[in-house]
């Protein structure tokens, strides 16, 4: 489809905050047309990595390319092909859903008529039309995720980078988001998303990477990474979890 370039390529991305290493050199190739899951426990560096990959956070070292465009050298070319839904970042939430979509569309240089038509369609599909003139700040958490996704999709990007798209989303909305993303990939798009919900990743992804302590621990096709076991087992083993059974916390039981 898009030829020889991977949809997203990261080389040696690293970031240190106040002497604390958040990401310690991440290399990653996301093939075009793949559905890529970035797994990791809390604090593994998922958000930091994705922020550096899309141009929101300047890396200390390393580079990132979106379909061959250098994110830091040719930001205009890269950002045109890119749709992003960051996590833990506010939207311009004193706008209504429709206003927010119009803002994003025009900001991307789209034709106003196209913006109108796509915004109406997206609001309809995501069941946000009923919200009417409610401001996004008054939306529920799930609705905020959906409008965030709509903003990222509006300009028809070739690569979609989503940070925790399924967090705080109810099962109905989650199924809807899954369907939309699935259709997007079937239509030739590429999705990279971070999550720590194994079940979702196993159902959706063609490729996964497990990130822990700021480095990639496992990477490859889904079957390649999990082998004969379940993804959760592999994940817990790689990350090195601990189970609380014993004398500690005994005051929790009566």
């Amino acid at each position: 489809m898009t030829g020889e370039h991977p949809a997203l390529a990261l080389r040696g991305l690293a970031k240190t905050f106040d002497g604390k290493v958040a990401v310690a050199g991440v290399d990653l190739d996301v093939p075009a047309g793949s559905f890529y899951g970035l797994l990791g426990p809390n604090g593994a560096g998922k958000t930091t990595t994705l922020s550096m990959a899309v141009g929101l956070l300047r890396p200390d070292h390393g580079r990132a390319w979106v379909l061959g465009h250098d994110v830091w050298g040719d930001p205009v070319g890269a950002k045109r092909l890119l749709g992003v839904m960051p996590d833990g970042v506010r939207l311009f939430d004193r706008l209504t859903g429709a206003e927010l979509l119009a803002y994003h569309g025009l900001l991307r240089g789209m034709d106003p008529a196209v913006v109108d038509q796509r915004a109406a369609e997206l609001l309809d599909v995501l069941a946000l039309t009923d919200a009417g003139r409610t401001l996004v700040v008054d939306y529920s958490a799930g609705m905020k995720k959906k409008i965030g996704l709509a903003c990222a999709l509006l300009h028809g990007p070739r690569l979609l980078v989503l940070d925790e798209p399924f967090e705080a989303v109810d099962p109905v909305s989650a199924a809807l988001i899954r369907d939309i993303l699935h259709r997007y990939v079937v239509g030739g798009g590429t999705v990279v998303f971070s999550s720590h919900v194994m079940e979702v990743v196993e159902r959706l992804c063609s490729h996964v990477a497990i990130l822990a302590g700021g480095t990639i621990k496992r990477v490859g096709g889904l079957d390649e990474v999990r082998g004969a076991r379940s993804l959760e087992e592999v994940f817990v083993e790689v990350v090195g979890g601990r189970t609380a059974t014993g004398e500690e916390l005994s005051w929790l039981s009566r």
Binding site: A98, G105, D116
Partner: peptide, 27 residues
């Protein structure tokens, strides 16, 4: 709130900004 009227772009622009172009700057 009262039901929205017009397209998304029309809703974004307040009335006093009727003169502004429907482009990046206007948005």
């Amino acid at each position: 709130r009262r039901a929205p009227t017009g397209g998304a772009v029309g809703q974004l622009f307040p009335k006093v900004l009727g003169w502004a172009g429907r482009d990046r700057f206007g948005a």
